[in-house]
């Protein structure tokens, strides 16, 4: 719907882009852990808005659910671990700032030049107006893609690839098993055990 009017696309793009980048920078320059987590969530949420704008609804919703929800757990840990006020803010030494910003700035400069150097990337899509909303409604196609069936690639000339070779079944299974391993591993590592008696003492 938004794409019927290009100026709204540009408006929303810049709005979400500024929010994303602004809060990402706020994460960088804030020292308080909880503030950092808050900015991070806003930044991730705004980038979910960018995903919606690019027509990737499902990924946007997924971003909100898993990424932002996962970061929520980060906040909780932040709160729990920083109950003692000495952890709430940790200053970075100014020398580190100079080096990091120098390296980061030059990296950003390089990436920007690359992004705007490729002719194909900064030329408008000739058939942008023809893209219908139905074309971006791909939830079931994504689901079938994970099951190893690419219904979006039915016009694939190679018969071998059409038979399901181009699907994502194997990566999907690997990721599932990976998640299971991570779940067990994280639970094992984070379980309560007897603490070493550190001389610093604990509150």
């Amino acid at each position: 719907m938004i794409f019927a009017a290009m100026d709204w696309h540009a408006f929303f793009f810049w709005m979400f882009a500024l929010l994303t980048c602004g809060f990402a920078l706020a994460v960088l320059f804030s020292n308080n852990v909880v503030h950092m987590a808050f900015y991070l969530i806003l930044s991730l949420g705004a980038s979910a808005g960018l995903f919606f704008l690019a027509g990737a609804e499902f990924v946007g919703a997924m971003q909100l659910m898993i990424y932002v929800g996962g970061t929520l757990v980060l906040v909780i840990f932040g709160v729990m671990l920083t109950a003692q006020s000495r952890f709430v803010s940790m200053e970075t030494r100014s020398g580190e700032w100079v080096v990091a910003l120098g390296v980061g700035g030059s990296l950003l400069f390089m990436l920007m030049i690359t992004a705007f150097n490729v002719e194909d990337w900064r030329s408008p899509n000739p058939r942008q107006g023809e893209v219908t909303v139905a074309e971006t409604q791909v939830v079931s196609q994504i689901g079938l893609g994970f099951a190893g069936v690419r219904v979006d690639k039915l016009d694939q000339p190679d018969g071998q690839l059409r038979g399901g070779m181009s699907g994502y079944l194997l990566p999907f299974v690997i990721v599932s098993i990976h998640l299971l391993v991570v779940l067990i591993g994280a639970a094992y590592m984070a379980r309560t055990k007897r603490r070493k008696d550190v001389s610093g003492g604990r509150s």
């Binding site: 609804e57 499902f58 909100l64 659910m65 929800g69 929520l72 906040v75 939830v139």
Partner: peptide, 28 residues
């Protein structure tokens, strides 16, 4: 308001964010 192809998922995801305000309130 907006025809979303993944509406169920979106509603659940956004609803889950409500707790975030509560946690912030509790901490702050």
């Amino acid at each position: 308001a907006q025809h979303l192809n993944s509406a169920v998922f979106f509603v659940l995801a956004v609803l889950g964010l409500e707790v975030f305000g509560v946690i912030l309130a509790g901490y702050a």
